[in-house]
Design a protein around this nucleic acid. Structure first.
Lengths: 229, 229
DNA sequence: TGGCTGTATGTGACAATGTCACACAGACTT
DNA sequence: AAGTCTGTGTGACATTGTCACATACAGCCA
């Protein structure tokens, strides 16, 4: 499950993925590879639990994870997703400030990640400019992400957010989305009934067609109009 | 309006307020004071506008500011407030990553602040460990703040949030709150009518009494129960 | 005093969203 | 065929958001 990095080809790959390795001092690159372990994670495995003290920082090289909050009533809302080249920066923030993790993180696509100990995270952030810039940029990006979420749920109507969501989730794939209404609701921070209702509206207006467990986008332009209506 | 810092007593005061000055190298402390200007700001003055490129970072020494988003419909929501010893860290994040500011910031209490140029912000974050730790901690705190806001608006009912709000806003003062319903609505990200309605409910239940422009908390315990109901 | 003029608040109707309880439908097992 | 998951549909109702007003209070001026 856990292995030290040694393959030189792998090294090169990682250098391309993580900007702090490019142009870094060779001694640090060496150090980085020597003190890093690779882990693999199946989908739907918990990565961080709310309230946890974090012992490692995970840099994702493949796959993706979802960071989300759970409300008193059991509803969920996704704060952001992280993919290759990124890291669960909330972990870093917890590490640096010695705080418990304020949310949940779970794997979605099968994940391959590099594990870095808290000690290394702190040490490198003192010694390696490129590393701390990387951390700083990531955490700034996340702050931006979460501010966008606030804006969305505070001001935008659910039907428009949903239209937007469907478009974004099919950007890199075809027009078929394999997902349940509940999963969408958990991303958008609303309830399953609301999503079902609106999807049915969309279907009746000919924008999509629905089957159990999947949605087909038949009129993207119409959805685009809806999303910015 | 703008003056260089020279008074030694003032220096001492500031050292107490900003952790990165305590125990810092004397040469940096000297540098910091030499390259820092003091500004004063009346209440309700804009500090940062959404979309701005930031040219300075403001460290607040007195007073407070409010950072908020404005929705398409004109409604507002407060992301967080900053007070003495803190700084408009979103600015720092914009500076470090060369991005436009994603929100609005406005002074509330009369502000006294230290202005630092973007060049110094970047330079010190490379050279001065205590400074970059300060920045990192601030931005982490803000991320935590904004995540809490998401949780609030996504999952909690307005009446409970309002009860909680009233209690928090009178924590350091007496039981009289000088504020309009509109201002509360702008903090909580809802509309004035909703706040007025609920306040009226609270009044009829004997928790508060309302007069034009101010609210008196007559039964804090009852409000506490309401807020966690 | 009374009448302006802002700003603050109240109200009723309706739309959008959230909640609850339960019905129904498809896929899979036995 | 019956049982059992999981996913979806539905109607009733509560909460919240929106709109168009009405009303109330404070300060000012005639």
């Amino acid at each position: 499950m856990i292995a030290l990095i040694s393959d030189p080809i792998l090294k090169k790959k990682l250098s391309n993925q993580f900007p702090f390795l490019e142009g870094a001092e060779p001694s640090f690159v060496q150090l980085f590879f020597n003190s890093t372990a690779i882990v693999h994670l199946e989908p739907d495995q918990p990565i961080c639990q709310q309230g946890m003290q974090c012992s490692h920082l995970a840099l994702i090289t493949k796959g993706s994870a979802r960071v989300y909050k759970i409300g008193e009533n059991g509803r969920e809302i996704t704060l952001y997703r992280i993919g290759p080249g990124e890291s669960c920066i909330l972990t870093a923030s917890c590490i640096m400030n010695d705080r418990p993790f304020p949310a949940f993180a779970i794997s979605e696509q099968p994940i391959e990640a590099l594990l870095i100990t808290t000690a290394d995270v702190v040490r490198w952030s003192n010694d390696v400019p490129a590393w701390r810039n990387y951390l700083f940029r990531l955490i700034s990006d996340r702050l931006g992400d979460v501010i966008s979420v606030v804006e969305e749920i505070a001001f935008r109507r659910v039907d428009r957010r949903l239209a937007n969501y469907l478009l974004h989730r099919t950007e890199t794939t075809d027009d078929n989305l394999q997902i349940t209404h509940q999963a969408i609701a958990s991303d958008l921070g609303t309830s399953r009934e609301v999503i079902s209702r609106i999807l049915k509206d969309f279907e009746q207006q000919g924008m999509i067609s629905i089957t159990r467990g999947s949605i087909h986008l038949s009129d993207r332009q119409c959805l685009r109009n809806k999303s910015i209506e």
